[in-house]
Amino acid sequence: MGLGSSGQIYHHLKTLSSANIVEQHGRGDYRIAAKRVVPLFVSMLAAADIAGDLGT
């Protein structure tokens, strides 16, 4: 998928886990924490809007 090296992915997942944004459900199985889904999508939409990626 072109996401980068496994070391980079692990580093980002560790940071997201520490912030309680993702939860680990097994070896290599990470999921967005249920209570973080809506705030995460709102943040992503705001960032896309600021970047001009949403169109009009």
Rank of each mutant, 00 (worst) to 15 (best):
Q8T: 14
H25R: 15
Y10L: 10
I50A: 12
Q8W: 13
G52K: 08
S43D: 13
A48V: 02
R31M: 06
K14I: 01
A48H: 08
L13M: 15
I50G: 01
G52M: 10
G26S: 04
N20G: 04
A34C: 03
A34P: 08
V22Y: 05
I21N: 03
Q24D: 03
A34G: 02
I9P: 13
I21G: 03
L40C: 07
I9V: 15
R31F: 04
P39Y: 09
D29A: 11
Y10W: 12
A51Q: 11
M44I: 15
F41G: 02
L40D: 02
A19F: 03
V22C: 04
I50H: 07
K14D: 04
A46P: 01
Y10N: 10
I9T: 13
A33P: 03
L16D: 00
V38Y: 03
F41K: 09
H12Q: 09
G52F: 08
L40H: 03
P39E: 09
I50F: 10
V37P: 07
Y30N: 11
K14P: 00
G28D: 02
A34K: 14
G26D: 01
S18N: 13
V22P: 00
I21R: 06
G28P: 00
S18G: 15
M44C: 11
N20R: 05
F41P: 00
I9C: 14
R36N: 09
G52S: 08
S18V: 01
L13F: 14
A47D: 07
P39F: 11
I50S: 03
L40T: 11
Q24N: 13
H25P: 00
K35L: 06
A19I: 00
I50C: 04
A19H: 10
S17V: 00
R27N: 05
E23K: 14
V42Q: 14
L45P: 00
L13D: 01
H25N: 08
V22M: 04
Y30V: 02
L16A: 11
Q8P: 01
A19L: 12
S18L: 10
Q8I: 13
V37S: 03
G26C: 05
D49I: 06
H11I: 03
I32C: 14
V22T: 07
I9M: 15
S17L: 07
R31E: 02
T15G: 09
A33N: 11
I32K: 06
L45A: 11
Y30E: 04
L13P: 05
Q24K: 15
Q24L: 08
A51I: 02
T15C: 05
M44K: 14
H25F: 12
R36M: 15
H12F: 06
D29F: 15
K35W: 06
S43R: 13
L13C: 09
R36K: 15
R27E: 06
V22E: 01
P39A: 14
Q24R: 15
G52D: 05
T15K: 14
V22F: 05
E23S: 10
Y10F: 08
A51N: 12
S17C: 08
Q8K: 15
M44R: 14
I21W: 08
T15P: 00
H12E: 06
